[in-house]
Design a protein around this nucleic acid. Structure first.
Lengths: 250, 250
DNA sequence: CGTTGAGTTGACCATCGTCAACAGGAGTGG
DNA sequence: CCACTCCTGTTGACGATGGTCAACTCAACG
């Protein structure tokens, strides 16, 4: 039971090619997610320091950012695309912890090794900072510490929300909550469009919601049949928010 | 479905009497959990400061420590007993987030309002610090900040573990993991006895594991029939750790 | 001795996972 | 350009896991 053997969905895929290519940060002042991210805690002068220690990392679909258990020598800030965060059981079962959107910060400067794995759901871009350099920065700029701390608190809160979902909700409610929650998190990025990007695969949604791929597909298509939304490639367009919110509660 | 109506399991219970009675801290140097808790980051002189701003809070069974949404004007350190941490749905469904054991720290000094509710599973004792006073202390003693931060990171990790459990494990595996995990967390307190205290009710275990009370009871008693453990009032005695660990993986 | 609340257990059944077949699209190589 | 494979997603049939409901026991407590 429970999504048993995968024919190595998690082996480094050939299609992913090299994990990532990196180049120095240059245009932070043009970064679209800067006002959303921890970076906004810094003024112009401090920003130069940040820029100096960061790299921009472009990720192809499925490219690995870091893996659970690896020594955590970098922290990241997602600037484009969606990054899938997940943990594996020893037998291959997968639990997706969450999806990081543009503006989201990955990795506490305090932990020695990564507590989960991260890879790109579609194409994605992230800023990479060496943990040591970032920790030094945090030490000298209390406002940044505060932002990192806030980010940790928000992560705990999201984890608790998700535990409620996994422990006490029907399949219908899980999928509805997922869509509404995701649309809410996209809002600062895309202005609250009803078109919710879903670059991840059905399998990933299932692994996030504790459902089988079949149930995810059935539920989404039932929602579509009932006129709650329209399914389009790599996205859904929500039509009836209030009815969807109703389903999310059951 | 999903544990619907409760005839107000969460209304302030008459049996609980007054929420708690508090008295000034006096004997921190005799505190049994001091080496386990955030307090151990302080030296003797700093400790005097901590003692001055803390109160000892004795909780009767079911007494409320704080409630979700309340203004978070205190942080706590559990010193005896077990504290149940939970969130409620608007319709009364309950998800237990976790159980705090002696030595566990509750409440980040950063959040404005509590993200979950906390009450005593059995009789319990906690140290209470005003958030403002504690935040001041944290600002002046970086070692304490570090411990609080570590505690937050551990909470995130535990939340992730629990998401794996809720999303991708059978009832059998959930109960087995719960017992083994709890026994591991008791170890620093009780020296790793095979007798695992379970002061919480079956309902709370169910709300923690995302199972119905019936399934919790059935599973525990099946474990007992199969010789994995013995059920005693407010505890279980584990007999076969390796077989239990085996079940925890399914 | 009645009441209340927790825990246990059985009977039944709904939800959701499993398995399988199939469709469509992308990439590859001839 | 087509054939082929691979991958993702959809959909149906079936069955198992675990929820629901209810009855019962037992201990605590008045």
């Amino acid at each position: 039971m429970l999504s048993p053997n995968h024919t190595d969905r998690f082996a480094p895929s050939a299609a992913a090619g090299r994990a990532w290519r990196a180049r120095p940060l240059q245009a932070c002042d043009e970064c679209p997610v800067r006002p959303l991210s921890v970076c906004s805690a810094l003024n112009e002068r401090q920003f130069g320091v940040l820029e100096a220690v960061g790299q921009e990392v472009a990720l192809r679909p499925r490219a690995v950012l870091f893996m659970q258990g690896q020594q955590a020598d970098a922290v990241f800030n997602v600037t484009a695309g969606v990054v899938r965060l997940y943990r594996l059981f020893s037998d291959g079962r997968c639990q997706v912890i969450g999806f990081a959107l543009p503006g989201d910060f990955l990795g506490l400067p305090v932990e020695e090794s990564y507590g989960f794995s991260a890879d790109a759901s579609g194409a994605a871009v992230a800023c990479r900072f060496s943990r040591r350099a970032f920790a030094r920065l945090v030490d000298s700029y209390p406002a940044l510490l505060r932002r990192v701390y806030d980010s940790a608190a928000r992560q705990v809160d999201m984890a608790h929300d998700h535990m409620m979902l996994l422990g006490r909700s029907t399949a219908e409610a899980r999928v509805a909550s997922f869509l509404l929650d995701l649309r809410g998190r996209w809002t600062p990025v895309n202005g609250g469009s009803a078109l919710v990007p879903l670059p991840m695969r059905r399998q990933d949604i299932g692994d996030f919601l504790g459902l089988s791929i079949a149930t995810v597909s059935r539920t989404l298509n039932r929602f579509a049949r009932e006129g709650l939304l329209v399914i389009v490639p790599n996205a859904v367009r929500i039509l009836d928010f209030s009815r969807l919110a109703q389903m999310a509660k059951s």
